[in-house]
Write a protein that binds this DNA or RNA. Structure first.
Lengths: 226, 226
DNA sequence: GCAAAAGTGTTCCAGATACACCCATGT
DNA sequence: ACATGGGTGTATCTGGAACACTTTTGC
């Protein structure tokens, strides 16, 4: 069955740039392309939108189908629509991004992907289409958002130590942060609270565990400046 | 001539939320809809993307065709694609926004619009589709961007007084700003420079004229926080 | 007792805010 | 001379940045 329109229409896809932090490195989830064009290159999970689903639902669906990852909080990044970004024809991609907790994402190859893998953002394989450009924008946005939102908490398990949270900031921002200043600020903001639990791990003092006070909310400071 | 595809495709439009400031009020450019649906309601200028034009070029083209406005610096706002936002079928709208200089925009009704008009954002007629939601997001973005970009300079003529520029900030932010602090900061940032020219107007001391040092550039502080 | 990460306060600086008077012009 | 907006400087506050030692555990 085919579909006919009076005017030509572009194809619309949703893609997902999913970050995580593992072994002190910022990583991004990629899918190896099994077919042309860009066969053998890696790309962000994504695919064509269905006519009755919201954009973000399409992004979630493709992410789940291709990688098995579910339950991450997606945020719209940007829409890419340069005419020749896909050699097969006009494709407009609405791109979402997120920062996922390390363990929570159980990657498995889905039905329509030959392989799924986390890559350190500094050691990337060749990317398909304009996905390098998309990734560059996503990295900047992620780092910027860390400063004034609780997006980092999305990447944490339910309970976590302050050192673990600090490590997320350090990896994404690419620099070290003073421990005392970090703790002071995190607690002052009020987005996390201590649990009555400690984590014993290694030959050292146990670390207090914290949890997000409102795990759903991501933004809160609008900040207008001046 | 018709166009046929194996899978259904959404229609894609680009829309433009164009702000200006006139008579101490923030205004937005709207086009009256001549046909159904939402006949007689007002909407942002916009229309279907062509297959060989970039998204931002589509936005510029539609803006020019429907309102006669050209030469404004557009920035992508967000992509709206909820399935039932347009009763005629699935329509995905990539929305751009800008802040235009007051005089520069010579509005005229274009070929496919019954009427074009600037409305104060606080005295709006009924809007078509989800354009009230779009406008709400655009207002927030505009106010936020004022704080860390030179977008306000886009709304200025080539030469302008500091009082005029301050008025833009006050109108968009919806509050008054201290004159001395404002001038101090604007000059410290270095995005404007004084001309050897003064504006005589009214029964008072003439105002020095300034110009943007680099009128093209809009953003400069990335600000990561922490 | 030693190694290893957790935890904790104070000082300093820069940028933002608050605030009031004189200046140049047209009428 | 007076009304009108243009122009200027200082004191204070606040939030960010720098900085070093003690604590608790496992071995």
């Amino acid at each position: 069955m085919t579909h006919t329109y009076d005017y030509p229409r572009p194809a619309v896809t949703t893609d997902v740039v999913l970050f995580t932090i593992d072994a002190e490195r910022l990583r991004v989830l990629l899918v190896r392309r099994g077919g042309d064009p860009f066969r053998g290159c890696w790309a962000f999970p994504g695919g064509f939108i269905e006519l009755d689903e919201d954009l973000i639902d399409g992004a979630r669906r493709e992410l789940a189908e291709e990688t098995g990852v579910t339950g991450v909080y997606l945020e719209q990044l940007y829409t890419f629509g340069t005419p020749n970004r896909d050699p097969r024809g006009r494709v407009i991609s609405v791109v979402y991004y997120a920062l996922a907790p390390e363990g929570r994402v159980s990657v498995r190859a889905g039905s329509d992907a030959a392989a799924v893998q986390w890559f350190p953002v500094n050691e990337l394989p060749p990317l398909a289409f304009d996905h390098d450009e998309i990734l560059a924008m996503a990295k900047v946005r992620l780092a910027t958002k860390l400063g004034y939102s609780t997006i980092a908490l999305q990447s944490m398990p339910e309970k976590f130590t302050l050192s673990e949270l600090q490590s997320v900031y350090e990896v994404v921002l690419g620099r070290t942060i003073d421990k005392r200043n970090f703790r002071k600020r995190m607690l002052a903001v009020g987005s996390i609270e201590p649990c009555q639990a400690w984590l014993r791990r290694g030959n050292h003092r146990p670390a207090r565990l914290y949890r997000a006070t409102s795990p759903e909310v991501v933004d809160w400071t609008a900040r207008a400046g001046l």
